[in-house]
Design a binder for these strands. Structure first.
Lengths: 334, 334
DNA sequence: CTGTTAGCGCATTCAC
DNA sequence: GTGAATGCGCTAACAG
């Protein structure tokens, strides 16, 4: 039925070792034999069995990637960066959504490891002790991607979320805003939630403004929750003059809530956020936001992983990529 | 180093066959021995090697999916549908971007098949004879996902793109529009390009309007090209009163070009498209569009694949999912 | 440059 | 219920 390396060997009149050599591009084969083998391969329609190869060589040329949600544009851009570089180094990726749920994350890490991936890219929510525990059972390298862990010194690549948020709020401050509302993510989320809130706080406190509870509300990162929270802010006796949203989607929701209330952005209210999702420049007014280099986060972490899998020594295994504030149309001087 | 089934057998004082049985949930094991084995597994930190298992059983519990571009929100939603169902049936997915490039598609199909996936989901551009050729070498089932092929009777799931486009243009017609411009995709693309153009054509011709060359322009599916093409339409001596765009992104680009020229949507010009991408409802005016059930396309095709892999007999292996016109705010009566 | 020989870690007969 | 034996298809020494 299925044609194996042995069939090819017989057909070409050589040993299976020789076939293996030509298939693996081993130079120690006489050009003529190589030719014979290729012909036999062609004739038989031989296709190497990567599973058998993996068992024998202990390498699968596939890496696992656990991601929160591939249908979220932020993560899908990271994924594209990962896949492009993986492809370049002849790796394939097994993609698993884990929705930032701890149990699901732990489970997929284990199945990925069972599948003998050569390395693992982890993009998740909080890195708990259980995660660390699971990571420790791995004999292959793991790098955190868009996720940082304080408790463990693991290879990682991410931006500095605290500082990105700080920069965003500073821009508002420089534009004369004093009463700045924040649409935050959950504080349980270390990167997109907690760190961004901390950046907001630091920027305000630095200029002597105390963070006011009534000006910080938690959303769920999505458009609708941006709308909801904004309605709340609009109902305040003393409205904020500017809004800092933890994500672009919530910012866009906020903009629409503002517009629907009859006010204008940025003339009446300024809005800024962090992400630079694709749609940030596809809405009017175009969103002023702090750009996170999604594609690069994926690409760089995959590149780092290849080095690790290759046992190359890497100078810096915890890399922080730069962010950049993109001034577009949603922020104005007060 | 790595602990194998053999180590567990020794530790538990049983044979490796027994360990294999408990790991695979074979009921023919005395509860007591099962317990012993589990304890040994725990003690040793044994993790089954899926590669070895795959070689022995000829099943890998992973399916390959070739997709045009995971960073495109349309496809990433399909991917999520695929992964959710795959997960439900305990499959993992190897994800490969192929950008609708024939050569890349053929290449990844082959590497996926080498990796002994149990099945393949193909989402691509045109299905050429070369594709068919590659598919024929496969011993595992393949289903086309969001892609149809006329030449071959392969399992597939998709919407009827021609009819979706037809419905969109009909809505325009019913609103009194007679001069309708189309921002098309390339006619080489059977589904998003050619079929949608055909639907446009049929709707017009049905009411006795001849398709005019100056009213059909080719874009590349992206926002920017929607802007470009719209500028062209706006420069026409006799402007169209409505625009049908082959994708939401181009439609949104068109809307902004219209607005930038000082006109209003839908008061001065109506815009409709096909897709219902996430951002369609996140722009103002909200986009009227024909919804394609992306998630379901992925989910249904994966479900179909599981049946095929399971050698179940399936009644209909070529399924057409329904589309739905979503009347929002971008179309008005002329 | 080429062939021989062992496994890789497990599922799966087939006996007992 | 359980164990022994065999082979899945290939790579990797090791000889020659």
């Amino acid at each position: 039925m299925t044609v194996t390396i042995y069939d090819v060997a017989r057909e070409a009149g050589v040993s299976m070792a020789t076939v293996s050599r030509v298939v693996n591009n081993n130079p120690n084969v006489k050009p003529q034999t190589r030719k014979k083998v290729f012909e036999a391969i062609e004739r038989l329609g031989y296709r190497p069995n990567a599973v058998a190869r993996g068992l024998a060589s202990k390498k699968t040329t596939t890496v696992g990637v656990v991601i929160p949600d591939i249908s979220n544009s932020i993560f899908s851009e990271v994924a594209r960066g990962i896949e492009d570089i993986a492809n370049m180094y002849h790796y394939n990726i097994i993609l698993c959504n884990a929705d930032k749920k701890k149990d699901k994350e732990i489970r997929v890490i284990n199945t990925l490891l069972e599948k003998q991936v050569d390395g693992l890219l982890f993009m998740g929510g909080t890195v708990t002790d259980e995660h660390i525990q699971a990571f420790k059972t791995s004999s292959v390298p793991i790098v955190l991607c868009g996720t940082t862990s304080d408790n463990a010194a693991m290879p990682s690549v991410d931006i500095d979320h605290e500082s990105a948020a700080y920069d965003a709020v500073q821009l508002l401050l420089r534009n004369g805003h004093r009463r700045i509302g924040m649409i935050s993510g959950t504080l349980q989320d270390p990167a997109n939630g907690y760190a961004r809130y901390q950046g907001y706080k630091r920027a305000l406190e630095e200029v002597g403004i105390a963070v006011s509870d009534e000006l910080v509300r938690i959303g769920n990162y999505r458009y609708e929750s941006g709308v909801e929270v904004m309605k709340y802010f609009l109902g305040l006796a003393e409205k904020p003059s500017a809004i800092f949203a933890a994500t672009d989607e919530m910012a866009i929701g906020a903009i629409h809530a503002i517009q629907d209330s009859g006010l204008r952005v940025p003339e009446d209210l300024s809005v800024i956020s962090v992400d630079n999702a694709r749609m940030a420049s596809m809405v009017r007014p175009q969103l002023t936001t702090v750009a996170q280099p999604m594609y690069d986060i994926g690409a760089v972490s995959m590149r780092l992983l290849t080095k690790l899998m290759n046992k190359e020594t890497v100078e810096m295994s915890q890399v922080t990529l730069p962010h950049e504030v993109l001034s577009r149309q949603s922020v104005a001087h007060v």
